[in-house]
Amino acid sequence: MPIQYYIYFSLALFSIGIIGVLTRRNAIIVFMCIELMLNAVNLLLVAFSKMHHAAALTSNAASTAGVEGQLFVFFIMVVAAAEVSVGLAIIVMLYRNTHSVDINFLNRLKN
């Protein structure tokens, strides 16, 4: 599969995530859109890793080039899991204080 195809697909998913963050006001859905963007980046990293591997296989049949990209995806998933636990705790605290998950309530952090 040509690599451009994966780039376009990931860009489409990433843009949908950006549009979601910009247009929705429910904090949980904004958070889910961030997860969507992370997944788009993960898919692109795996595709690039396979592209790199295909290029390395032509010179050395036993090459393991491209493992780093997939491990990077693994670490991104680890960090995303930690981030979700803390972020959802913050959202629960926000709901407990304001009885709403509207992110416009967070405007008061300005003052």
Partner: peptide
């Protein structure tokens, strides 16, 4: 992306290639 010349002719390896298997990833990890 459309005008990136470095990307033209490159393709991701489908269905083959064993870097995604757990043996190789575990060794590197």
């Amino acid at each position: 992306i459309r005008q990136a010349t470095e990307l033209s002719g490159k393709a991701a390896l489908m269905k083959t290639g064993d870097i995604g298997l757990i043996k190789n990833l575990g060794k590197a990890l």
